[in-house]
């Protein structure tokens, strides 16, 4: 599939009267990787949430979010329609799985919810590479933190998404796991042909160390609001 995966214009939200997070311009082509590597507390997760349509945009002037060419209105109600699992995959900082479902059910759930059928070859490949094929019948509380995170990665990649959003995906893992999991994510994302947007303050050390960074600035707007501004151009 070709065509621009992501197009963002002036998408933002005011988190408090004094602080706002805005992505003023960000375009991603298939397979392209960008990194948000600003300091903690600058709104990296919020920026990913805005792009993933999990956080509705605050209605900035000229606000626009397009996923695979489709305009996204944002908000929880529209997510199922705007960001199906073959368009968007999301990996969170701590492996968030539905606690009362097995790993297998968790991984398959996004596609089941949208009525999509998984590709058996791709599914097998993902499970084999992540090393969790034997754990599918276990519940999240019956496996390790690292295995949970691998399941979360599998869930995000199960439908070969066009865009993979990674929010500090390895920060909760022990050092031995960190490099391995990050390398697997990079490998599988590349194999899926997904564009990747990674939020991490340690990106320079891992598999995405060479990926271009988004520019980040803290500016004060005309109303005196501090704006954490992300721009999709490589930092100088």
């Amino acid at each position: 599939m070709t065509g621009r995966v992501l197009q963002v214009r002036n998408l933002g939200i005011r988190l408090s009267p004094e602080f706002a997070v805005v992505i003023d311009r960000l375009d991603l082509e298939p397979g392209e990787v960008r990194v948000f590597d600003s300091a903690s507390g600058t709104g990296k997760s919020t920026a990913l949430g805005l792009i993933g349509a999990a956080i509705p945009g605050g209605g900035m002037p000229g606000e626009s979010l397009r996923l695979c060419g489709r305009a996204v209105t944002g908000g929880a109600v529209d997510r199922a329609h705007c960001a199906p699992p073959d368009v968007l995959g999301f990996v969170l900082q701590t492996a968030r799985l539905v606690p009362f479902l097995t790993l297998g059910e968790n991984i398959a759930l996004p596609m089941r919810l949208t009525g999509l059928a998984p590709d058996p070859d791709w599914s097998r490949h993902v499970l084999d590479r992540l090393g969790i094929a034997d754990l599918l019948g276990r519940r999240p509380d019956q496996v390790s933190v690292g295995q949970r995170q691998r399941a979360a990665v599998a869930r995000a990649l199960w439908a070969r998404p066009r865009l993979l959003l990674l929010d500090e995906p390895v920060s909760a893992l022990d050092p031995a796991n960190t490099a391995a999991v990050e390398a697997l994510i990079a490998e599988l994302a590349a194999a899926a042909g997904a564009a990747v947007l990674l939020a991490s303050h340690k990106a320079a050390e891992g598999a995405f160390g060479g990926a271009p960074r988004c520019r980040h600035r803290l500016v004060i707007d005309r109303e005196g609001v501090q704006v954490s501004l992300f721009t999709g151009q490589e930092a100088a």
């Binding site: 993933g52 999990a54 929880a76 109600v77 997510r79 199922a80 329609h81 960001a83 199906p84 699992p85 999301f90 968030r96 799985l97 539905v98 606690p99 009362f100 759930l109 996004p110 919810l113 949208t114 869930r155």
Partner: peptide, 18 residues
């Protein structure tokens, strides 16, 4: 009890009516 799970279900594409 399951607030985070319900939020996650929304994030992974479960429509609110469901």
């Amino acid at each position: 009890r399951q607030r985070v799970a319900f939020s996650l279900l929304s994030l992974i594409g479960m429509a609110n009516r469901r």
